[in-house]
Structures are given as C-alpha cells and as structure tokens.
Amino acid sequence: MLAERVLDGDVRAAARLMRDIDDRMKSAVDELKVLYPHTGNAFIIGLTGPPGAGKSTLVDQIVAGFRKKDLLVGVVAIDPTSPFSGGAILGDRIRMNRHADDAGVFIRSLGTRGALGGLSRSTTDVVNVMDAMGMDVVIIETVGVGQDEVDIVSAAHTTAVVMVPGLGDDIQAIKAGILEIGDIFVVNKADRDGADRTARELSAMLEMRHPEEGEWFPQVLKTEGSRGVGIDELIAEFDRHHDFLKTSGHLQRLTEERNAKLFTDTLRDQLFEAVFGAIKEDGTYRQILDGLRERTTDPYTAVERVLAQSSFS
C-alpha cells in the first residue's frame, strides 16, 4: 500500500501515488481513502496571474521564505497540456531548482490534461497527498492562461493574484473576476517603470468595492521576484490572511466549500464513468447514436432513459 508509506514520509511512494492520481488509476482512490483522515493541516496558497508575470520565480522565493521558518513546503505547479498531442512541457521547476535536493521541499509539476479552470483535475488530490505527508504549506501555481482561473479559489485558502507593471489603461479592462478572486495582489517586476502606478490603480479599483466591516480587505504589494525584494512582506501578508481566516470563522467556511467541491467533482466523475462505461459496454450507446442519426430519438429522451435504467454503481 502506497498510502502507509506516504504517511511514513516516503517521497518515492508519494510521487507514485500522485502519478496514479493524475493517470486516474482505480487503485489511487483506495490510497486516498486511507490518506484523507490525515489531511486538513496544510496551509494552501494559490498563485495565479498571466504567463510570464513571475509566478514561478515568486514561488521559489516564497519557498525559501517558509524554509527559513523551518516549515515543510509542497509546490504543485500546473502548465498547459497541448490539446493537439496530449503532451506538455512543464517548465516551472526551472525557477525552483535550488530547492530540488532540499528534503523539506516537494515540488510536483502537472499538465492541465484538458481541464479548463487553471488547474488539473488531479490538483486537489495531489495537494491532499502533500498535506498527508506533513507539508505545513502547499503552494499551487496555476496555469495563468485565459481568464477563467476560478478553480484556485476553492482549492486554496489564500489566493494571490500576480500582475506586472505597465498594464496602464488596460487595468480598466481587467475582468471583474480577477478582483474577486484575489486575497492579496502582487505587482511583481517592481524594478520596471510604472509599478507604483499599477499598484495605485489596483488599490483604487479594490477600494471601489466598498468592503463591509470585518471583511478582508486585499492589499497590493510590490515585489521583485528575481532579486527576492518584498518577499518577507508577502509572506507576512500570507500569514496575516491565514490568521484572519482562522479568527473570523472564514477558514471553516472555506474548508466546507473545498470539501463540497471535492465531493461533487468526484461524484460527477464517478457517475459519468459508471453510467457511460456501462452503456458503452452493453451496446446502448451505439443504439442511441443510431437513433440520433435516424432522428428516432433525441439526446434528452435518450439521457432520461439511460438514467431511469441505471443503478448508479
């Protein structure tokens, strides 16, 4: 059993289990069952923002910062899978190589494998493995392409949105969504012109949202990932948000949301696989396709019939 070895801190076993999860092996589910009671202890941080903003560089610095405090750190870094070949080049590690042989750091790269929300579908389970291994902090770096990177909000406790200066007037065009998902905003590449202006504009936009009394008000921080400037302040802000979550009761609500999402995602996957697998197996699917072609049935009726006949197991 891999799970027992994972709980004993066996890195090889953990890495293999993550692979089984990512490859959607049935056996992984049994392992995850064993690990689940040992999860819920890690502080999970998400970093999102456009490609090239410096997310991986910041992750490297944040890892170093938490290591200085003697905390164990896991990193899950997601890069896009090619929709054409199914292959991927996962390059986030390039910026984190100095931590590769630190036994207190575990870095895992994942391809999106067709998922659209900025994470892979395996991300939460892989984070859970790191959590069960005893990682104090787990940092998730999202893909950073597209604008629907909303999955990170339910996957992480604290989400930092990383931007760069020079957005200028474009900042007006930033989707409202990005302001909603950030607990912390980072203007990285502060060595570049316009960092102050971008930070000011961002702050102004955040202030327009009139937060209620007692709610979290996101700060805008400036960093220089490549030289490690502003990292201590960023880590202090992570800690401050974590404390806020704990004292305000938000942590419980977030955990609830996270649990609900993991449950409903798993339910959706398993129901689909069970039902679709069964109708493919027994020829029903073929018949439905024939019926649709002949227009003797329609997709809605066909689904209703399948559901009526399924025992969902």
């Binding site: 890495a15 070949s85 996962l90 590690r93 390039i94 590769a100 042989d101 870095i107 391809g111």
Partner: peptide
Amino acid sequence: RDAGFEVIYTGLHQTPEQIVSAAIQE
C-alpha cells in the same frame, strides 16, 4: 511534447543531486 509525452523541463546547470531528486518527485 509533440509525441504526446509529458516533459518536465529543468533547464541548465543541474547537479546530479538536483536531477535525481526532481526525477523522483516527478
């Protein structure tokens, strides 16, 4: 990548320790 493999690209100047640790974690 184009052949459908998942590549973990670690870049330049790797020590053998970094390579082997990364290979195991990945």
